[in-house]
Write a protein that binds this DNA or RNA. Sequence first.
RNA 1: GGCCUGUUGGUGAAGCGGUUAACACAUAACCCUCUCAAGGUUACAUUCAUGGGUUCAAAUCCCAUACAGGUCACCA
Length: 547
Amino acid sequence: MTNKELANIMYPDVSKTIEDYEKMYPKRNLDDKAVVTRFAPSPTGFVHMGSLLAAFVSRKATKDTNGVFYLRIEDTDGKRSVENGIEGIISDLKAFDIKIDEGALSETEEIGEYGPYIQSKRIEIYHTFAKWLVENDYAYPCFCSEEELEEIRTLQEAQKQRIGYYGKYAKYRFVSNEEKAKKIQNGEKFVLRLKSTGDFNKRIVINDLVRGRIEYPENDIDHVLIKSDGVPVYHFAHVVDDHLMHTTHISRGEEWLPSTPLHIELFNKFGFEVPKFCHLGLLMKIDDEGVRRKLSKRKDPEAAVSYYHEKGIPVEAVSLYLMTIANSNFEGWMDANFGKSIDEFKFDYAKMSKSGSLFDVNKLLNISKNYISRLKASDVYDATLNWALDFDKEFYDLLVKYKDYSIAILNIEREQKKPRKDFESYSSIKSYIWYMYDELFTNLNYEWQNITDKDEIKKILNIYLNKYDINDDKDTWFNKMKEVCDELGYASDMKKYKENPNDYKGNVADISNVLRVALTTKAMTPDLYEIMKLLGKEKMEKRFNMV
RNA sequence: GGCCUGUUGGUGAAGCGGUUAACACAUAACCCUCUCAAGGUUACAUUCAUGGGUUCAAAUCCCAUACAGGUCACCA
């Protein structure tokens, strides 16, 4: 029996040919340098930070070259797929402002001419390519049961052989087409296996854009290409899809490096051009035991991109951070090109770190802090409102009720050459400004410092309140505080105080501390002058009386 | 166990045969006519996992060892 006849028995429903598909998906009309790449997650429910990095980098590379970035859903494993998984991916991408040019938009909709972009809808295509492999003696059906494979494995382990279905262990390589056909006609399940022609003792060179030249032994394993349910495995789907979709750059995690020789063998068998590979280092973290390991979806909350949404960390800050992980020269570029868009920075695959980067939340927060400090107060207000809407209803209501007042609070020490930097996330803002709202000014815990005597505090507050005028400019305001010092025997001049601390009961700092704590309960706040101005004399009096 | 990759300060890293081994985060100290944040100044790797080699010269090239990570599925 010829291979062609066997192929017909294996895939009787295939009506098209590879040529038909080549015609349906012609070469893209793009610049030679244009990068076509993709984000190809499986719909497991949420996007991992490492995947986001890959998506981000891919998006950036295509933007830099006027290429195409598309989203392909790799749902060939039912066990991994989760309900609404596709929606989750799309909303995460949207949240981080990573735009796709083509691909799946939802379970049922998509844009682009190279679809379907969901692998489970491409089964017919895979079968067409699979049939071609059988016809050309590059693949064959295998009927081994799990137990049989287990036996082979045990045998190999015992004999200290390389493990796998290859060479003389590839049992169904040696079975005749007639016999295989009979099994299929009897209704026996089969998988499709590659008939590898690789030689383990020969070397194959991968020129990886990130890691440079890497050598591997050639693949000689007869890998499963199509599972017994007719659905392809990743390796096969990847090769077929990335060829038909004319992908030029495969950006993926380094866990794929060991199977790249297999992928290259497949590309070669089909006579397809081999795309460029970019194997990215994994994102790592140091866990509580001090062990450095891969950032894990299951164990580490910060691995999920939804975490940053909940924490109220601006997506722009996350993008900035991802860019510094991707190309560490980005930070320097950003300093030198202050105010320019990230789009103007030229990304380079070769500058990516080969070893896995430790994911540094501290650094992210620092970037976030700097980012927020440069925003206008009204933008901070909008973003905080947006965050609070989902995560803090009480705060949200206050922000809505006192809009202008809130913006004014957020504007304290903001519009100056060196703006104040204490908000590292939108979720932390409340903890810095809560005391400005009467509604939150309850359950108080006053942080008195040097002056703790009740009568002394009362005296200071009374004297001060009589002097305070909301229309004073900052110098006058400060002078009045000094007047209180002089009247009560505190040093109004810090230098003099430092020279002879024993001549005084204390100094301006002590007086201002009393005022500050009386108004806010906190020993550390932004500029007191502005706080008083915003509170107004009436509220000040009320709060002084509460003390 | 086989195959592969990686290892520069607490962290992210630059470095590509000749540098005082950049820079950023973190940390600490000091300074800055009220605190804090910020800012400024300073400190923080005699050494690039370890041991050999090549070279006038090595973090950079070679070899071995150690450690870490990845992978070896009808998962991606």
